[in-house]
Design a protein around this nucleic acid. Structure first.
Length: 667
RNA sequence: GGGGUUGUAGCUCAGUCGGUUAGAGUGCCAGCCUGUCACGCUGGAAGUCGCGGGUUCGAGCCCCGUCAGCCCCGCCA
């Protein structure tokens, strides 16, 4: 098809803006054809641009035959420039923002054609692999367009927010140094320095701290970070974080800067959020919610019910009571009608889930109209039954689900179950009143989890490792515990949590060299190693580093939650699959051997020489020494073998000979 | 590294107990159609049943392996 030129065509309006007020005006529009409806001598076409959709129309009476024929030749996703007069419609479409008007075509340029799309842009259920392969088409879909706009707005709002607070935006290196601890690094081989590597940053952590030492006091960066770990629905190997660092601050100061930002971005999607956000110590988060990122939309808390079973006939529970705190009985209690919504089948499902997490079973007690039914009722005497009912303050109906084990085991089982059940209950939507008790889709429940442990014992490494990172300041009240009981030492570290997702985390940092050295020592980094890896940091801390701290927010996750999605790929323009591939570009992919050699990633073994007329040409610029060896070797070859490529290893041994066509060369 | 799940026409899917010619809707192509807006009507083309191997007289269906997408555990300071 012969294409038209854009030429001097100028857009006069955005398609989505046209209303009856524009009637009679001649307008010039641009965009893509969403669909043609050809009724014979009357043709409709929906023209889409970034801002909306408007209907074009032409018929035999109003348009000349050439124009009509051209319009009929248009297919879906053709790129068009249209000129026409705005007019009210004979039959209006209330489902469309521009449904009261249509454009009576007076001119049409076909700027480009389009092959039939591999998938329809309107359908929801298209396979994600296909969408990712043709991501540039997927991004034409209204929802992804909306998500990208939202993402852009969040980024802008964030920049403005920090700018108003006198923050300075920095760019820190992408090619940087590999750091121990933490996630696996993406490595970049150095061509100039054989055998040495850059690492892509897992975060600009040390740079932003050094900028505090430099005296900038308020740092912000919206930066890409890289972690070579396995993916999840909310995790990509490269992701964007809002990185913040401030001098002369306490934890509350950082939180005080972030909270108003969260209020603003929530407002973008019509959500009102109250500040200050609740602060929940890590220990309480684990005790009540079994998670360090609790979803506070659900009001149900985990309860300790070890005591009511202390004298019970149910051995499993009584043994826990006798274990002096080693093992506990903990429970989730769902009061009232919520209990009735949980079917026996659902309970079986939860039990399977709990067993996968290492629970022996999932004992339950259900109070209904017929009194108590329970998986362990036969072990309970009247007194125990009464104690149980009294403990949960059961009035009418109720359901208790139990787990027995250590703190960690029961937290994991009941913490996961709490979220699962709340989600399921919310999905039933049988009673709007329940939404105050369980997951309310329309609520944003922010909170800070604070007082994280500084260190945790690693079975794998047989030493303590930093929970957050090794630059995190110990809690001033716990400094004495550092050497005596490291596991009990708290950190001045805090996570921002929204609806069960960790949105970000931060800490007050160590700002004196001595404490930093102490910290390295405790996590098993010796003085020499600390010097080699973090010498610049220790130096910096010794030249007047101010007290400082900060945090990093996951921008992708934030936008995901604002967009109401449960998958991070929906808010990233070009994401990777769960196997860390890009289906569109097919990265990662193999590279030429030549590239690998340049980067010193292949042994320098092979040297290939072409046997020419009277001289040897080295493809790799081999040393004179090697060339001499090669000559010697070739001298031992028969003339037939000598016509071609001869490959040697580093010791000058012949690895391969390859005969080439061409004039015969004789030694 | 481990577990679960999916893979059939361009797309979304159905396919019975293993049975001889693998279907539907949609999209695409062609024709007709003056008020459509998921236009309608008529006709047509369109398949490496992910790939490889095996069992069987016979495999889309059963078995083994493998690849890819998705979800989870481990991992992610």
């Amino acid at each position: 098809m012969r294409l038209d030129q854009l030429g001097d065509f100028q857009r006069t309006h955005r398609n989505g803006d046209l209303r009856l007020d524009h009637a009679g005006q001649t307008v010039r529009l641009l965009g893509w054809c969403r669909r043609v409806r050809n009724l014979g001598s009357l043709v409709f076409l929906d023209l889409r641009d970034r801002w909306g959709l408007v209907q074009l129309v032409a018929n035999e009476e109003t348009a000349d035959p050439q124009l009509l024929a051209k319009l009929k030749a248009v297919r879906s996703e053709f790129v068009l420039a249209a000129e026409g007069v705005v007019a009210g419609r004979e039959s209006r479409n209330p489902n469309m923002a521009t449904g009261d008007v249509e454009i009576r075509l007076t001119g049409l340029r076909i700027l480009n054609t389009a092959a039939p799309l591999p998938f329809p842009l309107e359908d929801e259920g298209v396979g994600e692999d296909l969408r990712l392969t043709y991501r540039f088409l997927d991004l034409r879909r209204e929802e992804l367009q909306r998500n990208m706009v939202l993402r852009s707005e969040v980024a802008n709002l964030t920049r403005n927010h920090f700018r108003e607070l006198d923050f300075i935006e920095f760019e820190t290196p992408i090619l940087t140094k590999s750091t121990p601890e933490g996630a696996r690094d993406y490595l970049v081989p150095s061509r100039v320095h054989a055998g040495e590597f850059f690492a892509l940053p897992q975060s600009p952590q040390l740079f932003k701290q050094l900028l505090q030492v430099s005296g900038f006091e308020r740092y912000v960066q919206i930066c890409r970070c890289f972690r070579d770990e396995d993916l999840r629905a909310d995790r990509q190997p490269e992701f964007t974080q809002v990185d913040v660092e401030m001098s002369f601050v306490r934890q509350e100061d950082i939180q005080g800067v972030i909270e108003p930002l969260m209020v603003k971005v929530s407002k973008l999607v019509g959500k009102d959020v109250l500040t200050p956000f609740p602060r929940l110590p890590y220990r309480e988060a684990m005790e009540w919610y079994g998670s360090d990122k609790p979803d506070l939309r659900c009001a149900i808390k985990i309860q300790d019910v070890t005591a009511p079973f202390a004298t019970s006939g149910f051995n499993l529970f009584r043994a826990a009571a006798d274990s002096q705190g080693q093992r506990r009985v903990r429970a989730l209690f769902f009061p009232g009608e919520a209990a009735g919504l949980l079917s026996r089948k659902a309970l079986d499902g939860y039990q399977d889930q709990a067993k996968q997490m290492g629970a022996g079973g999932l004992p339950y007690a259900k109070w209904g109209k017929d009194g108590l039914s329970s998986s362990f009722k036969k072990f309970l005497d009247a007194a125990a039954e009464a104690a149980l009912k009294d403990h949960f303050r059961v009035e009418g109906e109720g359901l208790a689900i139990f787990a027995v084990g250590t703190d960690t085991q029961t937290s994991r089982i009941l913490g996961d179950l709490r979220v699962k059940i709340a989600t399921d209950l919310a999905a039933t939507e049988k009673d709007p009143a329940l939404s105050t008790l369980f997951h309310d889709k329309n609520t944003f429940a922010f909170l800070w989890v604070v007082d994280f442990p500084l260190l945790e014992w690693s079975e794998e490494h047989q030493r303590f490792i930093a929970c957050h990172h090794p630059f995190t300041s110990p809690h001033p009240d716990d400094l004495d515990l550092l050497e005596t009981n490291p596991g009990a030492c708290r950190a001045v570290a805090y996570d921002l949590v929204l609806n069960g997702y960790e949105l970000g985390g931060g800490s007050i940092r160590i700002h004196d060299a001595e404490t930093q050295s102490r910290m390295f020592r405790i996590i098993g980094i010796g003085e020499a190693e600390a010097r080699a890896k973090f010498g610049f940091l220790l130096d910096a801390l010794s030249f007047g580093a101010p007290p400082h701290g900060g945090l990093a927010l996951g921008l992708d996750r934030l936008v995901m939650l604002l967009a109401g999605k449960d998958n991070i790929r929906e808010v990233i323009a070009f994401p990777k699959t769960s196997q860390a591939r890009c289906l569109m570009t097919d990265a990662p992919s193999p590279v030429d051997e030549r590239q690998l050699r340049e980067l010193h990633l292949l042994p320098e073994a092979k040297q290939t020489y072409r046997v020419g007329a009277v001289f040897f040409e080295s493809a790799e610029g081999g040393s004179p020494e090697l060339r001499g060896q090669a000559l010697q070797q070739i001298g031992q070859l028969t003339p037939r073998q000598a016509q071609g490529l001869v490959t040697f290893d580093a010791q000058g041994q012949i690895l391969d000979t390859q005969t080439l066509s061409g004039p015969t060369f004789e030694f």
